[in-house]
Amino acid sequence: MKLFIASSLCWDYHPNEVITIAKENGLHGVELWAEHIYYHQANPAEIRIHAEKESIELTLHASSWDLNICSINKGIQEQSIAELKKSIDLASALGALHMTFHPGRLTVKKYLVDEHMRALVTNTKRLLEYAAVREVVLSVEMMEPIAKEILTEPKAMNYFLEQVGGGLQVTFDIAHTPLEESNQIYLKELQRVNSIHVSDSKRDQYHVPLGEGEINLEEILPCLAEKDLPIVLEGMDTGRSLFFLKKHLNYLHKEWKERKRSI
């Protein structure tokens, strides 16, 4: 298992400090959030040098807040594409393994679905063309089944991949799978998965520390352990204590320790 941490777990720390934190905890890599880099006004060239020095691999989570690449509002749509192109440039400068980005969503739920999908396919192809020139691999994230989200289950995502064509990869987030569904089955059904986001989930809250939600972790974690992909511990923590990250790591250490005992 290639364990990464999302830099959003260490929001108050400079990206170079997050890389050091990952190194100190014996982790394989860091998924830097574009907004985190912008927030600290960090230099991507310096981040890349520091990561190479520490032997830490990098991926990038593109800007996603307030963006929608298939918005009915053409101004929002074009600005969202511009922001994602900016993230692609950032991924290139970082030497990131890939860039995860969020698909667009409905502007008004349940209305003009076909129009949104046409825009989503067209604009994703535009991003793929831009990324190819910069030698950046793109990975679209399957989202949680909430109002306005479009790509929320394997069948819809696989169909979208067919429409877009080759080149696009998929980021699977176990916290986005409905609690009544199986992450193991979702992962088996999804095509082109090259990255997996990990956190726990409750019925009233997504992305909580591992062991504090209702996901069947005993089912999915052994499957993830066999994957030679970035397994990214996710969450949002704006403090300095790193309590969220520590809870993730403590759970995993306990889980693997108990598993070894049972063998």
Rank of each mutant, 00 (worst) to 15 (best):
E189C: 10
Q169I: 03
K257Y: 10
I88P: 00
N25W: 05
L128W: 05
C10T: 11
I185V: 15
D89Y: 03
S7I: 02
A91C: 09
H253F: 10
Y13Q: 09
M142N: 09
D228L: 13
E218P: 01
N216I: 04
T152A: 07
L58S: 03
V198F: 09
K257P: 03
I220P: 11
V208W: 12
E153W: 10
E31W: 02
A156P: 01
H248T: 09
V137P: 02
L229Y: 12
F172R: 08
S7C: 07
L128M: 14
G75M: 13
M142Y: 04
S182C: 12
T107V: 03
T124Q: 01
L90V: 06
S195F: 04
K85D: 00
S80L: 02
E226W: 08
G235Q: 09
F160Y: 10
F243C: 06
L120E: 03
N73G: 01
V121E: 04
A42N: 11
I72S: 15
R105E: 04
G104I: 08
H36M: 14
E162Q: 13
A22Q: 07
Y38I: 01
F244S: 05
K247W: 05
G235I: 09
P44D: 08
L151S: 07
K227A: 11
F101D: 01
P209R: 06
A91P: 05
H50S: 13
T124V: 06
S87F: 01
H28T: 14
P154Y: 06
R240V: 10
L179G: 13
M117S: 02
L128D: 03
Q169L: 14
K246M: 10
G104W: 03
L210M: 11
E255C: 08
P44R: 04
I72W: 08
H50Q: 15
Q205N: 08
H248F: 09
A62H: 00
A22I: 04
E149D: 07
E212R: 12
L245R: 10
F4H: 14
E255Y: 14
S64P: 01
H36L: 09
K257V: 07
A42C: 12
G75I: 12
K247P: 06
F160M: 06
T107H: 02
W256L: 11
